[in-house]
Design a protein around this nucleic acid. Structure first.
Lengths: 153, 153
DNA sequence: TATTGTTATACTCTATAACTATA
DNA sequence: TATAGTTATAGAGTATAACAATA
């Protein structure tokens, strides 16, 4: 084991193996991000998952559950449970789609939109903490690079 | 629901809500990364988790299970199970630490080191696919920015 | 008293297959 | 035949608390 002095100086920086590994860095950054996101959303009765669904339901686009699943990289069966819960709380509705009666369009209610707005504001503060070490230019660069990876082609 | 033409053109790009959200982009990029990492490591009998532990055990540093837990952001009890499995396969050993007899130093065996080397090589190819949209400079920039988030201070 | 490793347990998340209704 | 939503279920991952050994 590292003695205390060395451990304290190395545990939180990146000179160990793996630290050049984009996959590892993504995993660790995401773990930190997810933890603070869920903490932030807790008081509103939301988590990262349910917030994402609600945010997409509040968008202009009329997205089906299948659309939500592929965009959020979830199995369609998980989307069922998420939409169920949000619907029971009166935050979203399932609208019929005359063009294809197999599908449900998921749409945020007035209450749902209000909650998303509130959640988005508190998340901005949390994200500001997460990205504290980056200036504005770096934040934009990071988002652009991540977008290329998250949405290939 | 989006009609087919609009959906096909938007599902895989980033013009929907959330797409400016660093937390969401991190989550989606990490999901893609984790999926390909686990696929790549499957034939070697490893996953992202067990590979991480093995890679750290193969490093010069003599890390305790507690060190592994905090570096990988895992609960110490999860590290027990991971080390158990790797030890049963003869890939790592738990060494006694005379300076603090409460701790186990986790060290890769000769076989463990050989497997890590093999895994690292196949992972390089996988990471190359994940980061296909980025040139070398962008890859270095991304790693540097992620490191600042993953290891604050 | 505090910390390391461990065990047990419950909870959440994830992956899979099968079913129905519609296309 | 193929797809959207749904249900059920099993497996993986995560979080928590408690305990013995050691500091």
């Amino acid at each position: 084991m590292l003695d205390r002095q060395r451990r304290d100086s190395r545990e939180n920086d990146a000179r160990l193996p793996l630290s050049d590994d984009a996959s590892f860095l993504l995993a660790r950054a995401n773990a930190l991000s997810l933890a603070t996101t869920n903490e932030t959303l807790g008081p509103l009765g939301l988590k990262a998952r349910s917030y994402s669904v609600l945010a997409l339901a509040a968008s202009e686009d009329r997205l089906s559950q299948r659309d939500l699943a592929s965009y959020l990289r979830l199995d369609p069966s998980q989307v069922v449970a998420l939409v169920d819960e949000l619907q029971q709380r009166g935050l979203v509705d399932r609208h019929a789609n005359p063009q294809d009666r197999r599908t449900n369009v998921v749409v945020a209610t007035e209450n749902g939109v209000a909650l998303v707005v509130q959640a988005r504001d508190t998340l901005r503060a949390a994200e500001d903490t997460l990205l504290a070490a980056l200036d504005t230019t770096e934040r934009n660069t990071l988002a652009a690079l991540l977008r290329k990876i998250a949405f290939p082609q």
